[in-house]
Write a protein that binds this DNA or RNA. Structure first.
Length: 430
RNA sequence: UCCGCGGUAGCUCAGCGGUAGAGCGGGUGGCUGUUAACCACUAGGUCGUGGGUUCAAAUCCCGCCCGCGGAGCCA
């Protein structure tokens, strides 16, 4: 008999015979009747076994996570969670599970659960998060594809840094030194000159000693880059992508977001284009009037970001950051060279900076000067400056942290739950 | 890297100078409608680690290690 996935049970007729297989999620044995909660990766269902069930003797061997196969009659029953249950006619064990399964149906600390991440992901909420992550990635690729963007991935092993050298993971590469990529941005400029509109998507590494719920040392970044993408076009692309991701997740997971994640769906549905936008200068005067002036350095702290986001109440752009605060390749504003043609997309409800991007410097002399100012060795970037030498045109783009996006969409507390196996400053396993 | 909090049973925690505790989980038995089932019994600990104070340290003091939360930095 063919196995039915629990997800598909609602399409089966009541009273029909079904066969499922999955893992024991809970057992409540009452003597001559036993209630089994069975999870198969697509859903959870209750089965009822009685002494007439073939394999009844096995009930006493069912520890948590025992893999079983079960055949029975599908019945509607108000007393079962989900409204349906299976009256088991036949039960068999596929693979036993040791009785010391560490994750109990009770509160655990996040630290403990993270140490059991390989098992924790079996829990429905965690599995759901990974499913939503998959939807977000697919929606992003579909959207970019519909706009003519070609996926061209950047290397992960790189010879030089893209931004600061202090946050690089260094490794031996035969006789040389290599670094794990911090961004595919520089390579994107090369591929944009070959294919017009491109994006890369892959793991990104930052050896930042950050301990916050928005940071991972290994995260996945989606980076579109296109010829002629000025600030205005950049904003427009980000808006459409952001909305496409919201739509994609609502299409596939609306009920789940509400029931399982208790996400306020209005916060997602109010994200209509155009998004509010403000210059860095406007943001800082707005912060002053809110009672949170920037410090002397003029830097935007976590509190500033949060107060501003609270005030705006929905995702918004901050653009024209001071040039000094941005990477060497960010183009200055021709009207005021102390400002850069850069922008960040900030989400409310603690979502924080979801994207960061801008327009790249095209002028080779200016680029050389900026590299000198940042103390970068020009020779290391010869291929990059070559792009300017041979018909270099202006490109622009941005990077979106996929985990941050998933975190915001689902209202998850910490990014570490939005990636299968998180890497943080103090966690390298499992 | 800095600041704050913590480390006691497999897990979540109480105990805070005088014989090591609870709930959950595990084991055994009971129970025909459970929903983190319930009831009874039971096993399980060099109190993170090294030193110090004391008649006596899980408890007080110092160093170190590990975890959690936050900051800076960023996506």
């Amino acid at each position: 008999m063919k196995r039915t996935r629990i997800l598909d049970l609602p399409t089966c007729k009541e009273g029909s015979e079904v066969q499922i297989s999955g893992w024991v999620d809970g057992v409540r044995a009452l003597g001559k009747i036993a209630f089994l909660s069975i999870r198969d990766g697509t859903g959870t269902v209750q089965a009822v076994a009685k002494p007439t069930t073939s394999g009844w003797d096995l009930v006493e061997e069912l520890s948590l996570e025992t893999a079983i196969s079960l055949r029975g009659i599908l019945k509607k029953d108000e007393r079962a969670l989900g409204g349906v249950e299976i009256k088991a006619t036949q039960l068999s064990i596929i693979a036993p599970s040791a009785p010391d399964y560490p994750i109990q149906p009770k509160e655990h600390s996040t630290g403990f659960l993270m140490s059991q991440r390989h098992l924790w992901i079996r829990r429905p909420l965690q599995a759901s998060l990974l499913r939503i992550r998959s939807t977000v990635i697919l929606a992003a690729q579909n959207h970019l594809d519909s706009l003519g963007y070609v996926r061209v991935d950047a290397p992960i092993l790189t010879p030089t840094s893209c931004e600061g050298t202090t946050t690089l993971f260094k490794l031996d590469y035969f006789e040389k030194t290599a670094y794990l990529t911090q961004s595919g941005q520089l390579y994107n400029e090369a591929t944009a000159h070959a294919l017009d509109r491109v994006y890369c998507f892959g793991p990104t590494f930052r050896a930042e000693k950050s301990k916050t719920r928005k940071h991972l040392t290994e995260f996945w970044m989606l980076e579109p880059e296109a010829v002629g993408l000025g600030l205005e076009e950049n904003i427009s692309l980000q808006e459409s992508l952001f909305c496409a991701l919201i739509d994609g997740v609502l299409d596939a997971h609306e009920e789940e977001l509400e029931r399982r994640f208790k996400r306020d769906l209005r916060a997602l549905k109010i994200c209509q284009r155009p998004f509010p936008r403000m210059t860095f200068a406007e943001a800082s005067s707005r912060l002053s009037s809110l009672g949170f002036p920037l410090d002397e350095e003029g830097d935007f702290g976590a509190q500033h970001e949060e107060e501003l986001a609270k005030d705006v109440g929905r995702p918004f752009f901050v653009h024209h950051f001071p040039a000094a605060a941005k990477a060497f390749y960010m183009a200055p504003d021709p009207l005021d060279p102390s400002l850069s043609l850069s922008l960040d997309l900030i989400a409310p409800d603690g979502g924080g900076e979801i994207t960061g991007g801008g327009v790249r410097i095209q002028d080779p002399n200016l680029l050389a000067r900026r590299m000198d100012e940042e103390g970068l060795n020009r020779d290391d970037f010869s291929w990059y400056t070559d792009l300017r030498k041979y018909g270099g045109v202006q490109t622009g783009g941005f990077g979106m942290g996929i985990e941050r996006m998933v975190r915001w969409l689902t209202g998850t507390h910490h990014v570490r739950e939005t990636i299968p196996f998180p890497r943080t400053i103090d966690r390298l396993s499992p």
